[in-house]
Design a binder for these strands. Structure first.
Lengths: 216, 216
DNA sequence: GCCATTACGCTACGGGTCGTAGCGTAAGCG
DNA sequence: CGCTTACGCTACGACCCGTAGCGTAATGGC
């Protein structure tokens, strides 16, 4: 999220930072009420109390505007140390799920991702302002787990990068799919099951389930 | 995919099945060339050699049309028995990835999913024509693995259903995220790594990696 | 204070898409 | 041959798009 205030060493009237905030908030409100397809820039401008031309002076179009509006939702994403890899994963996933449960995130994020398949610049914008911040959590969690001895240190840095990418796609993809496609909440129970599967794998997790059932 | 020919016991001129096929094909072609947002129903009608009004007589709007057009891409989805759970998973994931690698699937599918967050009927349509067919593969694969003894039989049917849903979200979500968000191909190498993670889990998979590195 | 510069609000516009209505024609069934 | 339904075509008001033009507001430099 780049600051939009006028860069130093420039003459002329500075851009209103308040207008930016109002526009992005109005965009999220419009996403909630109308969804992606019915959202119009004219409507957003009216909601924000801003002229339509001001919108076009700052953003190239609907896609870029929505990316920035949704990106702000991910500002709160943190990774508090919960003591174990499993707890860290559960915490991060629950935070991600909480953001994704908001209607403005659901309708906005997926729509721009869909558009980004035909627009490399848009894809890069999404990566920089949203995706990379999520991926950083994976890196942080991995480092902590290695420090705790829960995961072995990486030998091949290239292989390690591939693994991080893989885990990221699995975690983020699973939460998104659960929330948007299956349209069911990624609540604590689900997250526990997911974390167990991620850590121990399908075979071991199933065996554990069978074991529990036998004991009962 | 429901047949759109006139149901038996009806009078009047029957709907042209050829027109349906032409319209859906034209929709996919338009998705490839224009993407979701720039796709217009008027353009699709022209491409299909059909009047615009005919389109509106059959589909309520852009969303429903694209769902049906994309759904046809999933007709080829099968699960040949490859002898082991790992091989079955790899085969199914590679098929799914091949479909998702098409531009018409990328831009179309995610867009309608985004729209479905605000439209329960559309979500149900997607579920019936696309999602359920994928989920059936998970059920089939699980049954085979149990028959082979690779997975324990399920005791609690409710728990089993939850597990199937979980695995489905993980598999489909990971492939979608890899293909659309990370914008990199889910090729054989990636699928192998993913399958290992899914089966053995993060801890075991990492230990194996470290082991391999030590041996080398 | 005055000027250059940039941002803002407002209005107006051509162009495109939407979704529908109306009407004549085509293709089935009894 | 009639009845019924689908189709093609045209036309339409409504909406949204993205931009141009102009007067005004808010800065910094002199």
């Amino acid at each position: 999220m780049q600051t939009r205030t006028t860069p130093a060493g420039r003459t002329g009237r500075p851009r209103s930072a308040a207008a930016d905030a109002a526009i992005l908030a109005a965009t999220r409100a419009a996403l909630v009420e109308l969804g992606w397809s019915r959202l119009t820039l004219g409507d957003v401008a009216t909601r924000a109390g801003v002229a339509k031309t001001t919108l076009y002076r700052r953003w190239a179009g609907k896609n870029e505007l929505v990316v920035d509006a949704v990106a702000e939702l991910f500002d709160e994403l943190r990774l508090p140390d919960r003591g174990s890899l499993a707890a860290d994963i559960e915490g991060a996933v629950l935070q991600f799920a909480a953001i994704l449960s908001r209607p403005e995130a659901k309708s906005g994020l997926m729509a721009v991702v869909a558009e980004s398949t035909r627009d490399a610049a848009l894809r890069e914008r999404i990566r920089a302002s949203i995706v990379d911040r999520q991926k950083r959590l994976v890196l942080e969690g991995r480092a902590r787990a290695q420090a705790r001895g829960e995961l072995p240190p990486e030998n091949d840095p290239e292989e390690a990068a591939r693994t991080v990418d893989l885990i990221f796609d699995v975690v983020a993809g699973a939460v998104v799919h659960r929330t948007l496609v299956s349209a069911e909440p990624a609540d604590e129970e689900w997250v526990r099951g997911f974390t167990r599967l991620l850590l121990r794998g399908l075979v071991d997790a199933s065996a554990q389930e069978a074991q529990k059932a036998l004991e009962a």
